[in-house]
């Protein structure tokens, strides 16, 4: 078991033997998954494979029935709630873009910036330009600088996806979990998003859930295929996509 313990200490995210079931349905079944520091990983798999549930578990939204979920070598994520986990350095983008529609793009980013999170500091927080540099930086990375003063509700679907990714960046997490970032995007937007994620991956660890195989190919990273709540296949995209089991359950012949 030495390999496991080195895995734990060296990895950024470490899941071992994780199971969770809803009313008898095993959404996650003895799942093990290791992500190294600085790594970007793509997760693919058919609907109901447990991809989003896995994110729910990592971010503290769902408590697993069994198994270990360790972040950054020492933090047991099953003992913390969403807010704690977010503050530890895990950012999450939802499947459906979720931004603060009645705030401007700038305020969206400003709310995400790492800073005080308590009620009183927030009340007396001087909103003068403490985070100005960071905001500009994030807006530049996410190609939203020209929309800075716009209401988030007026953004296009793709822009909202980027804004949400931008909010994750503003949080400055160690790990970004990105759920279907290109769903509903045009091809041009998809390409742009792939580039954006590769840029981000230079400074952060990233897990991307995606169905779009073209997009996964563009990311050019190691791929994990989930099926019925556990890992079906793992490796390069070529390796995974030629795995007969993956072809069987997911890609189709």
């Amino acid at each position: 078991m030495t390999t496991v313990s080195t895995d734990v200490t060296n990895s950024l995210l470490y899941l071992d033997g994780v199971s969770v079931s809803f009313d008898g349905f095993k959404a996650i079944n003895n799942l093990s998954f290791v992500l190294n520091h600085g790594e970007m990983r793509a997760i693919i798999g058919p609907n109901g494979a447990g991809k989003t549930t896995m994110m729910d578990i990592v971010t503290g939204k769902t408590r697993p029935d069994a198994g270990d979920v360790i972040f950054d070598g020492s933090n047991d994520l099953t003992k913390h709630d969403e807010a704690d986990i977010a503050m530890m350095g895990i950012g999450r983008k939802f499947q459906k873009p979720t931004v603060f529609e009645s705030h401007t793009v700038e305020d969206n980013i400003a709310l995400a910036l790492s800073g005080p999170r308590g009620v009183l500091p927030m009340l007396f927080h001087n909103s003068s330009r403490t985070g100005e540099g960071r905001i500009r930086e994030v807006l530049d990375v996410t190609r939203l600088a020209h929309l800075r003063g716009q209401m988030a509700s007026s953004l296009s679907h793709g822009q909202k996806q980027w804004l949400e990714i931008g909010m994750l960046l503003a949080q400055n997490p160690m790990l970004l979990l990105v759920d279907e970032p290109v769903a509903g995007m045009t091809d041009a937007e998809t390409e742009e998003t792939a580039r954006l994620l590769r840029d981000i991956a230079e400074g952060h660890s990233v897990v991307v859930i995606e169905h779009d195989m073209g997009f996964v190919r563009e990311l050019d990273v190691r791929v994990t295929c989930l099926h019925e709540g556990s890992v079906l296949s793992d490796g390069t995209l070529e390796h995974v996509s030629s795995d007969p089991r993956v072809v069987e359950v997911y890609l189709g012949r």
Binding site: F22, T62, K96
Partner: peptide
Amino acid sequence: ALRGRAVE
């Protein structure tokens, strides 16, 4: 109540 994958 039915438990289920909590989406958002």
